[in-house]
Nucleic acid binder design. Sequence first.
RNA 1: GCGAGUAUGGCGGAAUUGGCAGACGCGCUAGACUUAGGAUCUAGUGUCCCAGACGUGCAGGUUCAACUCCUGUUACUCGCACCA
Length: 803
Amino acid sequence: MDNFKKIEKKWQDYWDKHKTFEVKEDSDKKPYYILVEFPYPSGSGLHVGHVRSYTAQDAIARMMRMQGYNVLYPMGWDSFGAPAEQYAIKNHIHPKEAVKENIKTFKGQMKSLGFSFDWSREFATTDPDYYKWTQWQFLQFYKHGMAYKATIPVNWCPTCKSVLSNEDAAGGVCERCGSQVVQKEKSQWMLRMSDYAEDLLTGLEDTNFADRVKLGQINWIGKSTGVELDVDIVGGGKFSVFTTCIETVYGITFFVIAPDGKLIKELMPRVENKDEVEAYIKETATKSNMDRTELNKGKTGVEVKGVKAINPVNGKEVPIFLGDFVLGDYGTGAVMAVPSHDQRDFEYATEHNLEMIQVIDGADVSKKAFEKHEYLGKDCKLMNSAEFDGLTVEEAKEKITEKLEEMGIGRRVNNYKMRDWIFSRQRFWGEPIPMINCPKCGWVPMNEEDLPLVLPDVAEYEPTEDGESPLANIPEFVNCKCPKCGGDAKRETDTMPNWAGSSWYFLRFMDPHNTHEFASMDKMKYWNRVDWYNGGMEHTARHLLYARFWVQFLYNIGLVPNKEMIWTRVSHGMVLGADGVKMSKSKGNVINPDDIVNEFGADTLRIYEMFMGDYQLEAPWNTDSLRGCKRFLDKVIRLKDKVEDKAGYTDTLEALQNKTIKKVEYDLTHMGYNTAISSLMILSNAYDEKESITKDDYRLLLILLNPMAPHITEELNEELGFNPICESEWPEYDEEKTIENVKDIAVQVNGKVRGTIQISIEDDEQSIKERAMECENVKKHIDGKEIVKVIVIKGKIVNIVVK
RNA sequence: GCGAGUAUGGCGGAAUUGGCAGACGCGCUAGACUUAGGAUCUAGUGUCCCAGACGUGCAGGUUCAACUCCUGUUACUCGCACCA
């Protein structure tokens, strides 16, 4: 029976030859764009996790094609990235060679699984024809004032002489060599993403993202409304703090400023304990933001001696501290500390023996702070706050803000956690940033007609001594003429982050071969937007936010038809190893899809991955369960022996068949793949119980199963003499026939099931009640007791309440 | 730490609106057919002190009725800005 290999190859060739899944924009069918995140073609080949989401999207695509939609389901390669570069450094070959090999492997694997991708639209982000447009779009950002250079700290390994990602610098130690990581200032290209914070927030209303996805976006943007307050420094100078709790302003007993901020640098000449302060700044430079803001750790910090600040509302002089929990790049890099009403300040004050002033009445603040989440909305009154004493917190918030505005030292502001996008990478394997630095003209964008700026072929891919991209070592690349004045100039040697190419690839799929635009407005208008986008949970915050930002910018300059180009976004759960943990080479629990396809067939793997559990949750691999799926398909094959050469449907199967069509249709569009398959198992079990079934009965099962197991169903369908399923229509169900006329319902006494009765649709409440009371076992439980009430839920349950 | 998610038999999971908890599959037990197979078929399979009681991480609450709603709590998984 194991001729599945032949069958699968046969139908894959058939689809290729007939270009079954290639779509054109001239169809009068309704367009529908299904997208799955294009993979990074790693050296280890396709992961069974890829198979899960590609199959899920494939099933929707195949069903919707049969339902008459013009379905676009494309695939490509997100092929820039660090692993290819690491490989190149080690083996001294150009990353593009490794990428080429990997893509070949991935594509072969995808074909062997029978995914209905439109391969005529394939591209890779590393194709110069593609990244030409990524570069072109960067120039648009630049020309609209959205790209700028800024000096910001990066993780730096002094031993490897290399810039590290936070991941590679976890715990302040270099992943590769174990050296202490330090923060180093570097000039980087930035995109003004924070300008879009509000639009990215409101834009969510024009999407159909799952709630948890929307929440992820909202939290990443991290909007908070509050007041920015100016604070004078004794003896001259001032700084600002941002607070969401201006009502506690009279409770300020000190200020804390960021060790990595600008302010401390300005104050330095006046600082009395310079050594101590500098040592603390140095220490902070070795910590990541996460280590710094962790609440459980001790509140470290040092007083900045010789400098005092003045609380603007009451003229009180208070000390200034350095504290690493204050971040230089969030808010104003300084906070007001009110230990009585903020737990973090409370701990800091306790540790450093600082004064506390309670300004909101209603709790004891000697042991812990009385915080906003405890006092807001509870009618708590102010105290120790001059003329504001006795006002409620809500009134005081407003009145104090008004007063500060009048005094000209306070402003209402929205603060966002989301920062501008650091767009430079000191790496080789990324899109070169098309900017030229001219000694006379400064930064000058390349002429658009000179794009793409292609990555050169080089022998070494190591970064330079001072951590610049290897491109800096290539004089032919670096030295150029200024497009403006024609004088000698130098190219930017940083490249773009991996996120760049994936921020707009879904637009390119709409018009992948366009040589004069990244995509034509006409074609984008035809497809309108991505209707259904699937990817991993780990991408729902950042990739999606970057992509939305990119699109909103393009929309604002009139280059895409919608402000949001992605309608529904869903995320699938990871496929874990059989031991319930993430698959990894080191754990030896990796399943290679090729092995499964070889031994069990693509259809079995597809069915299994759809059946393995709730699509949105992670699920461990289980080979026994996979065998069960093979058995199910074998059973479907065996059912063919029961087929009589008869048209029409078997009467007694009609209700179940209609119900199954409805269920599969609903489940495939609601990510209930596992229950879709279970309902098909139920249908085949019902077929199996019959002496014989008709050809139409059998074909119905094959069509419903086809989106998930496309090869074997096509083969069996052909053996029956029908047209290929991929050229057929999806069956329609009759709602009336899905309703069962006669049904068993449970009868409860005091909420416990004591019997069942059979009811039919026409039965009225009274007769159901009477029949329920007559049940043997029910009688036993209500005998001699007082009936308080009888609840009848039509078609569901009867509950008799007795005393 | 912040944000999100999850918790149901031996295992994966089901239960669309609060209405018979455990669908469907795996595994397991017994049998049939067979001569040895990861094949097929039949019956069974939440737990227990088994005419009944208990049971959806834990502790409470609302309700005629709670896996589902509310309050609190624990554990695990993911993301946190240069991994993709």
